[in-house]
Design a protein around this nucleic acid. Structure first.
Lengths: 215, 215
DNA sequence: GAAGATCTTTGACGACTGTCAAGATTTTCT
DNA sequence: AGAAAATCTTGACAGTCGTCAAAGATCTTC
């Protein structure tokens, strides 16, 4: 029988057990979601099957339905986990530089670094974002990630403006749209084998940053 | 038996016939590709099957293998047909305005118009572009479309710079990346039901255009 | 160490996929 | 009109998919 997954606030002995079970349950979900994310980032959404995911894990395909109701719930869970990863990653970039040029440099390097190191994950992100336009189940979570990315970009932009004593010339949405376009195009070229894609991204990001504040 | 599809340069009677057959053959391919594009734009790449495509046409599913070797060739053909459509569409926008503000206005309106009228096709485009990162078969054709879109944008930008007596401040690649990001974000919001997405796109395009030339 | 809860594997199901071949139908040419 | 070529339909194939139930394995608890 499935264990009771209710979270308890009181801590009686029986509930400590339940808590431990819940933790273990949740751990397995994360572990399986990791395998799913790896599979997705390799094959793309269209070609990822549950059996393929299971083969990238230590378990057989049947176990996926023990930890997830169906495929949609698994992938939704993956998207959320990916988001947590993203936020963590970008919080690192959040520029504690004290002059605008250093900030721009750090930011540009940070973008280029994640593009290079996690190219497959970013490829997956754009795949899933496209997918969310067809499959409504993912839409809310994807929009959520998009918003947190927008906030991340806006933190950089407004901090940069502040350091250079100016005000941003465009909205948060527009700043995100343009930086995202830059990043996506760089990813496309990088994955197509272009050697200059990373440098172009660095240069482009600094250029764009200097143009979204008053001249 | 399959007819001979060789194109002839000389025009003997027998070859005129063959030519007519070739034309008919090519016409059917276009017709089927149309049905395929409609299906793709409705369901997305991941959920489009040959039988589904056939149901959106006047034929049965078997006929697809009479006109196309396999699914990949059909979809590649679709991508090319979509490109032809795009180029045609954007050539219309190509701004014969004589002052920069009118050009900017026409361009912004053109972007917003195609976003609204052909939202599903644009959705498909971003889906296929993501797909091309996983499926190498499409990569070349997708890159081809991307390049022609970049040229289209660059024609606008450089013409705008010329009319306003300035020079562009960024590369062609960067101009395309940012405008594409803007467009994609507008599409996301528009399809998610945002009423202001179109107006934001118009404003954003004009804003961006005025910032990619010397101040 | 036995009983029971929990976790995992296995194998099956119906539905769906791309592909193809055989035959029916239509068009074309003489 | 009749033969030949071209076109289209039908039905089947082997494979894969998500899902699920039953049984086996492992762990917990007393």
């Amino acid at each position: 029988m499935l264990p009771d997954r209710e979270a308890d606030t009181v801590t009686k002995p029986a509930e400590r057990i339940s808590r431990r079970q819940v933790d273990k349950f949740e751990e397995r979900r994360k572990q399986l979601a990791d395998a799913a994310l790896q599979t997705l980032s390799e094959l793309g959404y269209a070609r990822t099957s549950l059996r393929e995911i299971a083969q990238n894990s230590d378990f057989s395909h049947g176990v996926l339905h023990y930890y997830f109701r169906d495929k949609v719930e698994l992938i939704t869970y993956c998207v959320r986990q990916y988001k947590a990863h993203c936020v963590l990653r970008y919080d690192g970039i959040v520029a504690d530089a004290e002059d605008p040029d250093a900030l721009a440099l750090d930011f540009a390097d940070g973008l280029a670094a994640t593009l290079q190191e996690e190219a497959l994950l970013h490829r997956l992100w754009y795949d899933l974002r496209s997918q969310s336009l067809f499959e409504e189940s993912f839409r809310a979570d994807v929009a959520d990630i998009d918003e947190s990315l927008e906030r991340m970009i806006w933190r950089i932009v407004s901090r940069y403006a502040e350091l250079s004593g100016n005000a941003p010339t465009c909205s948060s949405a527009m700043a995100y749209a343009t930086f995202d376009g830059l990043f996506q195009q760089a990813l496309l070229r990088h994955l197509a084998g272009s050697a200059i894609a990373l440098d172009d991204l660095r240069a482009g990001a600094r250029h764009l940053l200097s143009h979204v504040v008053c001249a």
